[in-house]
Every structure is written in C-alpha cells, then in structure tokens.
Design a protein around this nucleic acid. Structure first.
Length: 281
DNA sequence: CAAATCCCCTGCAGGC
DNA sequence: TGCCTGCAGGGGATTT
C-alpha cells in the first residue's frame, strides 16, 4: 500500500478529521516491534494531547501534539489509518470497519467525532512518541522528498555507486518516498534498465529520471494512489493508479509500448519489473 | 565504506 | 479439502 503518494493521501484525508481534536482515550495491543514506544506509555501519555498538525516526511507521518511531543507513524507494508465509520476494505460491501485483531492502536477523542484506528496485519509499521526536542534517527537520515527530486541529487548520489539504479531509487537516504512500485514505474517511463549500475547514468538520464519520478508521484496522487490488496484512504475508498501501471505486477504481459513481455527480476529482495526491449541495459 | 543477505510478520494465491 | 511454496506498497540489523 503505502509509498509516498499513498502516505500523502492518508495525511490529506486525515487532517480535516483529526486536527484540533483532543485525545481522550487510547487502546493499544500487546508490545511488539510495531511499538517503538511501548503501548503502556502511549496509553498513559497520549490522553489530553491535542493534535496540532500532521505532516508527511517521506513515507512517515508526524503529528505535532499540544504538549510539544510528536507522534511518529509509519505504515510499513500493510498499515492502515482508518477513521471510524469507514467502509471495510475486504468485508461485505457497505459494512463499516470494526476493530479486529490487527488493529493495534485506537485513539478516541474528547468530542463526539470518529475514532482513529491504526491497523497493520504484518506489523511492519511503526509508532513512536517523541518527547519535546527528541529526534528519531530514521527521520534524520532521510534524503530530500521525492516530490522535489532533482537531477543534481540523482547525479550526485549516483557517481560512486556500483549498485543498481533501482536500489538507489529505493534508498531513502538519497531521496525519501519512492517504493517498489514507483521505482519500477519511473524506470520504465525513463526507459532505464533497473539493473544498470547507478554510476553508469548520464547527467541527462538523471535529469530525465528525476523529472519522471516527480511526475509519476504527482500523477498517482491525482489518481488517488495505488490500491492493490488493501484500501488506502482513511474513509475506505480506493485509489485508481494501479490501473495505469506500465510494468509493476505485469510480468509476462505485453509492454504497453512495444508488446514485448514484461520481465521480472529480483533486486535487493524486491521484485522488479521492466520491458527488456524498451529498457535496454 | 558500500553492497548483499537475512529478518521481522501475516495472509493469500496457486500448484499438487 | 489440505499442504506447501512463493510472494506482498518497508526498512533495520548483520554480514561480506
């Protein structure tokens, strides 16, 4: 589910519903590495806090709280932030979401508005409460946001890299927000083979690739993001960008440009899709 | 150092 | 129907 466009959309959908609201009660499940801050601490510390702002940083969401503390959230692979009343993603059409065994955190507010559920089946997501002035190394290490990716950043990062260009795009310290889908889609549009050594890219290829990354991410946001198995929006609605995938998840299917079968290779433990004709090594 | 490998966790689809 | 394998929008720790 969540790469930059999806996280951005979750933030946009959530803001009107949670900003300015005061947390009254917190329910959190058993400790797991989902909780960088213990559930007990969250239950104890969050009530009384008002959510002042919510910003996206790469694939993270960071909520500023009234006490000066901050709540850091990451959706991992299957994380979902769901507003009470949302349509259930996989259950019968028209059924509102109800808390289940994968719902690890519930925020109830002092007003009568909807609760907020944080659900994550695989528990790769993260939640951490940052004390005033406290920082998180994960945030500190992030590169510039991928929506503002420039040729300069890509070209600079690529110079001494023997590693594959796709790995560079996925490296959040180079640029933050690109995940497996948008890396494949961007390289496809840029007609660059994902296994090319990053250092083999020319300056003009970097310029083109940076522009394409920005455009793909922007277009996906406009289309409501990509929804594959789970929904993404806090109200339960789905995105539509997955219908426009050129290569992602299309192994064996014809390239939309030349008809050649889309190939799949594994790069850095991740499936990588490309057209072997349009994206020459 | 940089780069490759393994691991965290759960559910689902497909082959037999 | 059931079992088994492989795979999944992420990223951190460990190894080479």
């Amino acid at each position: 589910m969540p790469e930059l466009p999806e996280v951005e959309l979750v933030g946009r959908h959530l803001r009107p519903h949670i900003l300015g609201r005061r947390i009254r009660h917190v329910t959190a499940t058993a400790p797991s590495y989902f909780f960088l801050t213990s559930p007990a601490t969250l239950r104890q510390q969050l009530p009384g806090e008002t959510i002042r702002s919510l910003e996206r940083i790469g694939k993270y969401l960071l909520a500023q709280l009234s006490s000066g503390r901050r709540l850091l959230l990451h959706l991992g692979m299957t994380g979902q932030l769901i507003l009470e009343g949302a349509q259930s993603p996989r259950l019968v059409h028209g059924t509102p979401f109800v808390r289940d065994k994968h719902t690890h955190l519930v925020l109830e507010f002092a007003d009568s508005g909807p609760k907020l559920y944080f659900r994550d089946t695989r528990k790769f997501g993260k939640v951490r409460l940052l004390m005033p002035g406290e920082s998180d190394p994960r945030l500190d290490k992030l590169g510039p946001d991928a929506l503002t990716l420039t040729q300069r950043i890509l070209f600079g990062a690529s110079r001494k890299r023997r590693a594959k260009v796709k790995s560079m795009l996925l490296d959040q310290t180079v640029t933050a927000g690109i995940g497996n889908i948008y890396a494949d889609e961007s390289l496809s549009l840029a007609r660059i083979h994902p296994e090319r050594p990053a250092m083999s890219l020319t300056e003009s290829e970097c310029k083109n690739l940076a522009r394409i990354v920005r455009r793909v991410l922007t277009r996906s946001i406009e289309a409501g993001g990509s929804s594959i198995d789970d929904y993404i929006h806090p109200d339960g609605s789905k995105g539509g960008f997955q219908q426009r995938f050129r290569v992602y998840g299309r192994e064996g299917e014809p390239c939309r440009k030349c008809g050649t079968a889309v190939s799949r290779v594994v790069i850095g433990q991740r499936s990588s899709h490309f057209c072997p004709n349009c994206q020459r090594f």
